[in-house]
Design a protein around this nucleic acid. Structure first.
Lengths: 428, 428
DNA sequence: GTGTCGGCCGTCTGCCGACAA
DNA sequence: TTGTCGGCAGACGGCCGACAC
């Protein structure tokens, strides 16, 4: 990922310029989504790509589609470029990746080389996410800001005013500006966004159940100071307020993103190309690239795709070659919750076999059949891939970053899952 | 095309049911668009399909795309199925066609067989199309209906009322109902759509410059009667009015479509699949179908595609084998006007050569280089295909359906270009 | 014949605290 | 702490003929 110093992703492609803030993109993508670093080696799975296309076009892959015997079920590639995008109409986030398959010789040698470590997910340090209520989206009123959220990510109000109020300016993924009146009023007092809010709701076509998230990308020096020193000194408070304004206005503007609820099938049948041709296209493109060792381009749609299909080589090698799994083994796996935080679900391995023995024999893609502990397991997939799960009964070959029943915040050096709650940490 | 007796196109595809009125679809598609009949033989041009994908994704075909030497520049196919669709979001019309390439032997024999005649464009007999003004789309008022249009396609008003008014119910391509108050008032008197109009404008996101069209699919017995007998008898008029209501309410409801202005690039980069993969996909799908003589599916998007790329075999054979063209020859060609009627432009053939000698040698697709008579020729393409033009200096091998300087309406048996004006008929 | 406007009324938007969950 | 409501004032939607091109 090419990131300029301001944290914006400058991309020039056929005259079209896009500035996408990486932190905002990751916040919208969710806590479990991470993109492999540019220049690293990754493994690309045509099957997973096919699943994404099937989910996007709402059509399963057809039997008419030809086999590509020359295309292996996984392709080890050099990741040449990653750019973050958002759909102009829907704000849906997606990433464009340029991949180059390694030569046959390199594909074999790669297990001997030191593998790169995947970068942890870059969840913003200072953000909040709220699912919109009926009142939030109604034309009758504004947006009710949860108190902690407002205090955490909005610039502090001047509470000597009656009522305390300010204008907030936030930028979305397309770098559009949105202005809101932020006011602290009512009985009991609460934070509200009033003027400007309804324009945003109608422009983004938000409905109750969708989520909105605010980020203050500046690591909150102000918040830390406030925590440390409190409001005991009005003299200090005023100085603090000025500093906060300064930081906010300089480079670190307030950012604003949306995450739509999983509405039942917002599909577009994409009148451009038949879904069959799309499936053939992705296979033929990968096969051609593999045959000629040339680059090809894919789109990864984190919120539409059932699973990541471009994963760091190191993750793949560890899971496939350095981990022993067997039928009956217990495991756990991370999922995103409704509130966009993270929790684990537990299950048992019930089988290990090819998902599609005809087209993709000897593929590791979703090769593990599983049963889930909780009875609401209908929502979770019956097949997973080795690198998605964390086996429990084998001795871990590398220290797990998720010790059980951790009661304190993450040490700063470890991957930060910001939305993780203490209650979600324990195994249930 | 499977058409039920009510003129609706019943399609069941994976549980999804669509009812598209054929007449409305053609009205929205424009006067020059015609779909070959089901069961007929057609010629499919991968190059033209590629052009449509390029136009839809706003990306030209890349040099990285592999050649498909086994895929000829044109594929003679059996047309197994044609279904008419409209994009749920934008109402953009498109057609889905299922094609099956003939076997190599059949491809050769086909020129010996009697070729089917293409069906003429099915422009509705009783419709009007108006480009929306600023006042039409403003929230300040309603829709001003041109007088002739209202008298032609709306049920007649009861002019004994003061003011004369009625409720109109019209159905769009998705079979949604729209209700409008139709009133005849003002000084001078005019036809207006008031209540209900603004809901329609905002729902369809219409802006000034877009067009709206109304159809009364019943061949207007009422209108004919009115023309013949006039309003001289109030007794007759009342009887006429009742009959008209009866006809309208029975089966032949008022239909309503939209045509958006050619706004500069409303592109969606289609985050599903890279444009390279899409181009590869359409080529690979066609190549695979040709190799196995199996069916494949394409989408034809009349208002996005630069040219038709599935044409009746008879049209192709006539143009390519039974018409002599040479450099310097004069020709004329039909174009759609801003007002969605038809006019000819004239030009001269300046060359005959391959559009893409490397990928598509010996292709007839856009093999004719042309110069246009009028200086605004920048809008018209510099290359056309043989079957798009009408050569002038050769003796026509079949009677032209467009005699010069025709001053009377079309004989009812001939193809009807309803919007054609007398003034447009003469060569300028 | 029809596009745009000023005038006028009615509905809905949108800001407020009350109140309860 | 925050979701929803009634109350209220002002903005905007939307129907009308006047008028001009």
């Amino acid at each position: 990922m090419r990131l300029s110093s301001s944290g914006f992703n400058q991309q020039t492609q056929e005259g079209e310029k896009k500035c996408l803030n990486s932190e905002l993109w990751h916040a919208c993508a969710g806590p479990l989504v991470s993109l492999p670093p540019v220049g690293s080696r990754v493994v690309y799975f045509p099957q997973g790509h096919s699943e994404q296309v099937a989910a996007s076009t709402n059509k399963e892959v057809d039997a008419h589609i030809p086999n590509y015997p020359s295309l292996p079920p996984q392709l080890i590639c050099q990741l040449h470029n990653v750019t973050m995008h958002a759909d102009v109409e829907t704000d849906e986030v997606y990433a464009q990746m340029t991949l180059q398959p390694l030569s046959p010789q390199e594909q074999k040698d790669v297990y001997l080389l030191p593998a790169e470590l995947g970068t942890p997910s870059k969840q913003p340090t200072n953000y909040f996410c709220k699912t919109l209520t009926a009142s939030d989206t109604s034309t009758h009123g504004g947006f009710s800001v949860p108190r902690r959220a407002a205090e955490k990510v909005f610039p502090p109000l001047d509470y000597s005013q009656t009522p305390p109020a300010q204008e907030l300016i936030a930028r979305d993924l397309h770098d559009n500006e949105w202005k809101f009146r932020h006011i602290f009023r009512g009985q009991p007092k609460r934070h509200l966004l009033t003027t400007g809010w309804s324009v945003f709701v109608s422009a983004k076509r938000l409905v109750a159940g969708d989520s909105v998230l605010f980020i203050w990308p500046c690591y909150s020096v102000c918040y830390m100071l406030k925590k440390l020193y409190g409001n005991f000194s009005s003299f200090f408070f005023l100085g603090f307020f000025n500093m906060a304004s300064l930081i906010r206005n300089e480079k670190n503007q307030l950012l604003l993103g949306i995450r739509r609820a999983n509405r039942p099938q917002t599909v577009m049948p994409s009148s451009v190309l038949s879904s069959d041709s799309m499936h053939i296209g992705l296979l033929a493109a990968a096969a051609h690239a593999a045959a000629t060792n040339s680059r090809f381009t894919i789109f990864y749609n984190p919120r539409a795709s059932p699973s990541e299909f471009v994963i760091p080589l190191a993750k793949y090698v560890k899971a496939v070659y350095h981990t022993r799994v067997s039928v009956g083994m217990r495991f756990r796996m991370l999922f995103e919750t409704e509130e966009s935080s993270v929790r684990r679900y537990m299950g048992t391995i019930t089988g290990i076999s090819d998902l599609d023995p005809v087209r993709w024999p000897n593929s590791h893609w979703r090769s593990v059949k599983v049963g889930w502990d909780e009875s609401t397991a209908g929502e979770r997939q019956p097949r997973v891939s080795l690198w998605e799960i964390e086996p429990l009964t084998t001795f871990p070959m590398y220290p797990s970053p998720f010790p059980l029943r951790l009661k304190r915040p993450w040490p700063s050096g470890l991957p930060s899952f910001h939305g993780l709650k203490d209650g979600d940490m324990s195994i249930n």
